[in-house]
Write a protein that binds this DNA or RNA. Structure first.
Lengths: 153, 153
DNA sequence: AGTCCCATGTAAACTGTTACATGATTCG
DNA sequence: CGAATCATGTAACAGTTTACATGGGACT
C-alpha cells in the first residue's frame, strides 16, 4: 500500500501507515478482511491481509456507487494568489516561475513513470484503471504548466 | 469569509465557520488582528476584524514565501478507478458519464461566474489574483471534462 | 559492522466536519 | 408573522500528520 500511495494512486489519494494499521484492525473486526501470518527469511513475521467474500462484495459495491462530491483541492499557491491585487505586483512573476518549475518537474517525472510502467498495450490492458489515473495526472500537470505559462512574461 | 469560500477561493481552499472563530481568537491573542464591535441596525453586534501592522507584515511575508508542496488532491472517483482492471469493465462507462455530468455543470457554473464578476478589463485589473484563480478553475474543469470525454464511448 | 529500507505498531498533536445553540435582520 | 439568511459561538467526532519505538533483512 505504501508503494501504491507513492507510485500509483498517490496523486489522488494518500494515507500514512499510522492510519493504515488501526484501520486494518477495524476492518478485520468488521469481518471484511482477514490475515495470515507469514514468515520470510529466518523469522520475519509479516501479515498477509486478504479480503473476505463479504469485504470483496463491499468493495465492488463501493466502486459502483456514485461519487458525487466535487473535490475541493487545497492549493496554497493559489490561496496566495488571492492576495495579489494587480497584475504588476512584483511578487507575481517569481511565484509563477517557482510553480512552473515544480509542475514541469512533476510532469517530467510522471511521463517517465508512464514510459516504464506502461511500455506497451499489454501493460495497459492489465491495469487499465491505473493507466487512466496516470494519464489523468499527466494531463492535469500539463494543463497546470500551460496555465502558468499563459501568465508568465 | 464565508462568501469568499463559497464564491472566490472555495475551489482551492475552504474552511467552516467553526474553524474560523477559534482561529480569530488565536490570531488576536497573537497580536496579528484586532476587532472592533460594531452595531448595525438596532442592536446587532458584529465584530469587525482588521489586521494589525504586525499581522499585515506577516501576511505579506507569507504570500512571498515559496509554496513548495505539490497538492495531493483526494478524488474519490479516481480512487475507485484504481479498482477497474480492464477497459471493458461494465462499471467504467457509467462512472465516466456520471463524472462528466458533474464537471460539465461545474464548468458552466464557473463560466457564468466569470461573466458576472469580470465583465470587463477594469474588473480584472482590480482583483487580478481572484481573476487568475477563476481562470485556473475554469481551465481545470475544462481539462477534466476533455479527459473524461476521451474515454467515453 | 554499518547503513538503509521494510514492516509493524502506538501516542500525541493538529486539522477539519458535523451537530448543537442562540439571536437579529431581511424580505415577502 | 414566518422563513430564509447572517452572525456568533461551542462541542463532539472524524480524519490526518508527526513523532516515538522496535526489530529484521539486504547490501556493502
Amino acid at each position: 500500500m505504501t508503494k501504491a500511495f507513492e507510485h500509483e494512486i498517490g496523486e489522488f489519494w494518500q494515507a500514512q501507515h499510522s492510519q493504515i494499521y488501526p484501520m486494518l484492525k477495524r476492518l478485520e473486526t468488521a469481518g471484511d478482511i482477514t490475515h495470515e501470518d507469514t514468515v520470510s527469511g529466518e523469522k520475519l513475521a509479516k501479515k498477509q491481509y486478504s479480503l473476505t467474500p463479504t469485504g470483496h462484495d463491499k468493495l465492488v459495491a463501493w466502486v459502483s456507487e456514485p461519487s458525487p462530491e466535487l473535490t475541493a483541492t487545497k492549493d496554497e499557491f493559489i490561496l496566495k494568489l488571492y492576495f495579489i491585487k494587480t497584475s504588476d505586483d512584483p511578487r507575481l512573476q517569481p511565484m509563477l516561475q517557482e510553480q512552473a518549475a515544480l509542475h514541469r518537474a512533476q510532469l517530467a517525472h510522471l511521463q517517465e513513470r508512464q514510459q516504464t510502467v506502461f511500455p506497451d498495450q499489454t501493460a495497459i490492458d492489465q491495469a487499465y484503471g491505473h493507466y487512466l489515473i496516470l494519464d489523468h495526472a499527466i494531463g492535469r500537470e500539463r494543463y497546470y504548466v500551460e496555465w502558468l505559462e499563459k501568465y508568465l512574461s
